[in-house]
Amino acid sequence: MIETAAISAPRTPLRYSYFPGCSADSTGISYTLSTAYVARKIELELVEIPDWCCCGISAAAVTDPELGIALSARSMALSERANPGLDVVAPCTGCFKSLKTAVSFARKSTSNHARVEELIEMPYAASAEAYSLLEVLSQPEVATVVKERICGSLQGLKVACYYGCAIVRPPAISQFDDPENPQSMDTLMQLAGAEPLSWAYKTECCGASHQISAPRSARVLIERILANAAANGAQAIVTACPLCTLNLDLREKEINRARQNRGEKPFNIPIYYFTELLGLVMGGSAKELGVNRHFWPVSAIDIGVANSSLDAEVVA
């Protein structure tokens, strides 16, 4: 189609500096695989930050706010040095929040900026922005390309889009979407042919690391999220964070056991990364996207594309 190429303006290449985060090749492996698949499809180039370190997430911030800022600023500074001119994208919303907190802290005052450079012993201009992957894919120009690459449909699958805390709160840091009723993931799911539901637990906390350190207190947070999704008729929960996903996906079985012991109805809600569902309607197979690595079984979804049914055999 030479004609089309001649009339449409050349697309600005999509390039971002990439912060994978500590869970990228472990518990968040499906997120990494499906992100890579979607990125390939929409020609989004992800250039990994050399020698990035842990963002510190809440443990560092709780210990000392400066620690989270300094650890994140180190990776941002390495990004500016190795990938000049590129903004940073972090698929994990926890990483996104830490990186963005560091950027806004360093930009706030010259004394803050000096303190950060003193701590990381490196020049840091604080010129690169930090974005979540959801924000990057939701930008209108990118969403247009996403739409062009979609060849199947989720056929009205009823999905509860779950954003969690860190991607929207505090809004002064995240500067993204509506903190109480965000829509960006819902819009992408609509493009994929799903029916995003209106529900109340979009931005409720999943308990984060409290699911390890205070499991008995925190399990109910997951249960409430599953319960509200179920009450609203969700056939799936869609996520944008590896920790939220692990908490929901890994614990559903255990929560169901407890519910059955109490004589309550168990849930049957598979949990997907938004990138898995996008990849699926772009023609990816369950294996390529990492969908076969879930803990709670995924359901068969006919999306009308050869060889990318979700009828995946989940690893035993």
């Binding site: 500590c22 090749d25 472990s26 620690l67 300094a70 650890l71 701590l119 990381i120 803990f295 690893v315």
Partner: peptide, 25 residues
Amino acid sequence: RGMIGPRINHVKDKAAVRRIVDKVL
């Protein structure tokens, strides 16, 4: 599920990260 394995997941410049942690604390 390939979530746990003998992969090495550490930064090359460990000393730089250690200095940051120590300085802040």
